[in-house]
């Protein structure tokens, strides 16, 4: 401890003044990084000078903790917080330099035993077999109805994003329309009456109420998958319904086949519900939007994540230990 008090360099490296300067430098660096476009952010967050800045910050905290370490009750919280920051920085360093992450695309009925890490192939040592990939869609109506309309007489085209029942004037053509109803799975019964067959967006259609000079002209069904199918009484105005179904959830039912480990492991991987196996975590990150039989998983082996999460726990505990007594001590005094 005496060494830290007597040595000028160590005293400076562990000083509050340096800590405050480093705080501002990190704030400025982060602010610049946040303003940059995604492809340029690496110039800040992956740069040597940013690592150096964080390293000096870590050193400052380390010297500060060692030089002022004290086991009195009032200092426990502060020690915990500073040690947790060191643990988080250490974990982040491990994650950055030693984590392995790569994407794997698998079709139903096929397996994959490797991932692409940058330009290199990385073998996992086991296979991930995709038994089934499925998507659930929201059955409810879209947030906004994207309607395109063309008026033949004026040769004009308009695009709108509408809420339901919101009446929309079509330029200065005299026409107006509103979305009266929406069926995700339009069908006709034996009496040729329109009904909604299911909650799945198999045949999305909107019922439009069309008016001309404020007089109702007709009601027309417009189909997203069959643009020309709607029965039009007034052919001067044509509509197109662009429907983007909203995904509720997508999941991959997989089986891990490991030659060295018996019958393997069955699991369902979803967003927010990864599969962990032999140090790897498999995340559901995407799927093939054209061919819904392909899943896209990301395999991650991150040796730093545990340190970071333990650091988070200690950080929160430390802050409560520091501030709760300060809040409590003044309770009831102020008037």
């Amino acid at each position: 401890m005496r060494l830290f008090k007597e040595n000028k360099i160590l005293r400076f490296l562990g000083s509050v003044k340096l800590a405050l300067t480093l705080f501002w430098l990190v704030i400025i660096a982060c602010f610049i990084g946040a303003l940059l476009r995604e492809e340029w952010r690496g110039y800040v967050f992956d740069s040597g000078w940013f690592f150096a800045l964080l390293a000096v910050f870590g050193l400052n905290i380390l010297i500060c903790v060692i030089s002022r370490i004290s086991f009195v009750a009032q200092k426990i919280g502060s020690n915990l917080v500073h040690l947790s920051i060191l643990l988080i920085l250490y974990g982040a360093m491990l994650s950055y330099f030693f984590s392995i992450r790569g994407v794997m695309e698998i079709a139903e009925g096929q397996s994959q035993d490797r991932i692409m890490v940058g330009c290199k192939i990385h073998k996992l040592g086991f296979k991930v077999y995709l038994e089934n990939f499925s998507i659930d869609w929201y059955a409810n109506s879209p947030d906004k109805y994207e309607i395109k309309t063309r008026v033949e007489s004026s040769n004009s085209v308009f695009s709108y994003k509408l809420d339901k029942v919101q009446e929309q004037k079509v330029g200065k053509t005299g026409y107006s329309f509103a979305v009266k109803d929406y069926f995700p799975d339009f069908s006709l019964d034996e009496n040729m009456k329109a009904y909604n067959k299911s909650g799945h967006p198999n045949n999305p259609a909107v019922l439009l109420q069309i008016s001309l000079s404020s007089k109702a002209v007709e009601e027309r069904w417009v189909f997203a998958n069959h643009p020309g199918m709607g029965m039009a009484r007034d052919e001067n105005i044509q509509f197109r319904f662009n429907y983007q179904p909203q995904v509720k959830e997508y999941r991959s039912q997989v089986k891990v086949i490991d030659a060295n480990n018996g019958p393997g492991k069955n699991a369902v991987i979803k967003v927010n519900s990864p599969l962990s196996y032999k140090g790897y975590s498999f995340y559901q990150v995407d799927y093939d939007h054209e061919d819904l039989k392909f899943t896209v998983l990301e395999a991650v082996n991150d040796p730093g994540v545990g340190f970071v999460f333990v650091g988070f726990l200690i950080l929160n505990a430390g802050l409560i230990v520091i501030f709760y007594p300060k809040l409590k001590s003044a309770s009831g005094r102020k008037k």
Binding site: F31, V271, S273, Y283, V285, V305, F309, F312
Partner: peptide, 20 residues
């Protein structure tokens, strides 16, 4: 950050909202 790790496989992405 813990949630981001379970959703995207990474606890920190230097996304503008995270950075801010």
């Amino acid at each position: 950050s813990i949630w981001a790790n379970s959703a995207w496989g990474s606890y920190w992405n230097w996304d503008p909202k995270e950075t801010c």
